[in-house]
Amino acid sequence: MSGSGENMKSGRLDVRKTYKMLIGGAFVRSESGRALDVNAPGGKWLGHVCRASRKDFRNAVVAARKAASGWANTTPYLKGQILYRAAEMLEGRATTFREVLQSIGLSPVAAKTEVTQAIDLLVYYAGWTDKYLQVFGSVNPVSSPYFNFSVTEPMGVVAYVSGEKRPLLDLVTGIAPIVAGGNTVITLSTGRAAVPAMELGEVLATSDFPHGVINLLCGVREELVGQMATHMDVNALVTQGADAKESAASREACALNLKRFFPREANGKGDEDPYRILDTVEIKTTWHPVGG
């Protein structure tokens, strides 16, 4: 972003960053070549972000599907370490994120709170990766000579529409339980939230997430939510801050392939909740005879 004022005071012009989306591990501009303006709350122009197209979303689904099986089969220990690594990277760039959040209108206190909460949330879910199966799986006492157990398995590819209220935290609170559950994810950030989202891409890209596990798009909600809801190779849709009309349309569209749909209110409740991991995992039950 352009930051504040013209930075010629030291006699040197700042090098601005071109924000790019993260798809399949690559930082890319929208294939459509379109961009959106981002303005500060006062209306001051801050810069451009990409305006993802439907094709960008489709490309992201391809990348996410390609990465799905590898991430699903990554050990819980390693998944936890990678999520923790993301926390480390975010902590290391906490100052930058505070500045970015302030630039889009958050108070210094709010910006600081959001960054620390986002970091802690990553640590929280990092700790769940090797536990939720123990807590939420089961061995089932069937009344026949069988060993019967239920485990969680990732759904596959999940689309997540993030809110704008807590620009960074809303994104992290969506991503963390989805990937902790072994899914790959395509996120959509809109409006001012696009800026920290694209910044987060740089954190995630250096956090050992395999390419395609997390794909970050930014764009226009109305343009893309419908695509996310109808895409036949997406297993679940999680949204935050949708209005009644969008939720109704999404629920209807998700019926196309019985995509699991979880509209969440943007009230900041339940950020730390292992049941959010359960939303985007399936329960698989296996039977095997016990005999000699």
Binding site: P145, Y146, P289, V290, G291, G292
Partner: peptide, 8 residues
């Protein structure tokens, strides 16, 4: 031979 299968 699966014992349980045989029993069933």
């Amino acid at each position: 031979v699966d014992e349980v299968g045989i029993r069933e």
